[in-house]
Design a protein around this nucleic acid. Structure first.
Lengths: 293, 293
DNA sequence: CACATAATGTTAGTTTTACTTACATATTGA
DNA sequence: TCAATATGTAAGTAAAACTAACATTATGTG
């Protein structure tokens, strides 16, 4: 059973003893001098003794007050240090983000400069990999994933609708008849070098296409993938939103879409509970970028 | 410019780390478990990291939380010690009270047992002296004085009306004619040994009575003074309230009253500002005693 | 294995504390 | 003596802390 003066009154008193001045102490504590004066008064009433008295332009602690002040300073120094240290080490942790290579290439990269400009103090560790990493075990703060939104045990937030689209340049279709998914083996493939296509492999399999056995493959990276497809180098699978413009303007033709009935798209996936500051800032930035589109 | 988590949340967290149990920590802090839970949550949100997590029937700090907890414990130990020590030394100071001997004898003594019973922890240093001591210089907490209530620069509270009354046993008046104050020299005097009569000396002088030169004096103490007067040993000056009963019942006769036009009486006189706890308790007790009469 | 027990988790509403604003008073030095 | 710079104080407001009530989760036991 503790009976105790309020800690804020102790903190106020400590600052007053240090500054020997109510107003300066108040400035340090980001409050008015009146607030400090009242805290001191309350503390003195609690103890039932005078701890400080006015002395010219300022205040002087009594002997008892001085003694108390010294101990309080020691104590608050420890707290301040501990808090500051924890805060610094927390803030110094880079933000760990994992996402699909296509998302990095088509969405994040063009915007990352803006983020770095707005948050120069936040360091990002970016894992661009189509292999789904375990957020918990590998301690990632955020994953941006393509899927139907079902990641039980995680915070999931839909970022944008998208589906896998099999596209090709119109000129490559001249003289070739593609009616069934299995027909696409008639054309060469352009693959993203980082993308393991894990998400749509089973669709291909379902239609009797053994992706691995397909011979005519070109492996490229990032924008080059799309550029090569536009250029007629071959057929490719890309998330619909990165090619919708091309399709609309006739540069590409959509052969098939890998919709599975459910709505799919890109999602923000992160752990429940406390959201670290850098993640919070990053999420907010992503949402604002999306809203700006 | 400080940006800081609330000290109460830190104190709560410290207790939680120590107990590894919200409910126990809450009991120590005299609050509900819900209050502690919210403080912890706020602290974690402030830092943006998880500091503790549920673990079976209780909570376990994370590594960062453990570290913080250790530092906080150190710190709060210092505060607790400093506060406790100051409180103890403050409370251990005896209550310094000064008052007139007659007040001690007739009012305080019969009641002091009750006070000691109700506040066995408060030690009283009692100065029974009719010489007015300097409250400030001699550091008395309280004076109980006879007068008109004019003690500028002090807190003054009227305790009871009273005036100096010159009394005598009726049998002593047989064959003696006392009409003028100066006549009282015809009779012997009974004085309180501790009472210097400073307050009414000037009244006597005014009526041409040189108290010091009066030969037939008996010096007694406390109740004995009144007993001697009742017994017809001589004439005496006593505050009216200690003899009013005797007068009403015919045991004593009031020859003169030393009223100076102003209302006089006993007053509580103490310093402005902070009222120490023991004084506060004593004052409250005195008031309750007075009210009970 | 269901159930009693003992925790933590969470929210709405209330109480308490802390704070600001505004004005009064006090001290110093030019 | 006045301007500048403090502290002192009270009323009202804003913020923080807390309680009560109920929900959920974990543990051990008959």
């Amino acid at each position: 059973m503790r009976d105790f003066p309020s800690l804020s009154s102790l903190r106020a008193f400590e600052a007053v003893v240090r500054h020997k001045n109510l107003s300066h102490a108040a400035k340090e504590l980001n409050v008015t001098h009146a607030a400090v004066a009242q805290q001191i008064k309350r503390l003195e009433e609690w103890f039932g003794i005078t701890l400080s008295r006015r002395e010219g332009r300022g205040v002087a602690p009594t002997e008892a007050g001085q003694q108390l002040g010294i101990e309080l300073s020691k104590s608050f120094d420890i707290i301040d240090d501990a808090v500051k240290e924890l805060k610094i080490t927390t803030d110094a942790q880079p933000l760990r983000v994992t996402m699909t290579p296509t998302f990095v290439n088509f969405w994040l990269m063009p915007r990352l400069g803006d983020f770095r400009e707005k948050h120069p103090d936040i360091e990002i560790l970016l894992n661009a990999n189509s292999v789904v990493v375990d957020l918990r075990r590998e301690d990632y703060d955020l994953a941006i994933r393509f899927g139907n939104g079902s990641w039980p045990g995680f915070e999931v937030e839909k970022l944008m609708r998208s589906y896998a689209s099999i596209v090709v340049a119109p000129k490559l279709l001249e003289g070739v008849s593609i009616k069934d998914p299995s027909d696409i083996t008639k054309l060469p493939w352009v693959c993203d070098i980082d993308d393991h296509h894990s998400e749509w492999n089973h669709w291909l399999k379902h239609h009797g296409i053994e992706f691995a056995k397909h011979k005519a493959k070109i492996h490229l990276s990032g924008y080059l993938t799309r550029d090569a497809i536009r250029d007629g180098q071959g057929i490719g699978i890309l998330p619909s939103n990165w090619v919708s413009e091309d399709i609309k303007e006739g540069r590409l033709v959509e052969l098939f879409s890998l919709t599975s009935g459910e709505e799919t798209g890109y999602h923000l996936v992160y752990k429940h509970g406390i959201v670290p500051h850098h993640l919070s800032a990053f999420l907010k930035w992503i949402r604002s970028q999306k809203a700006a589109e």
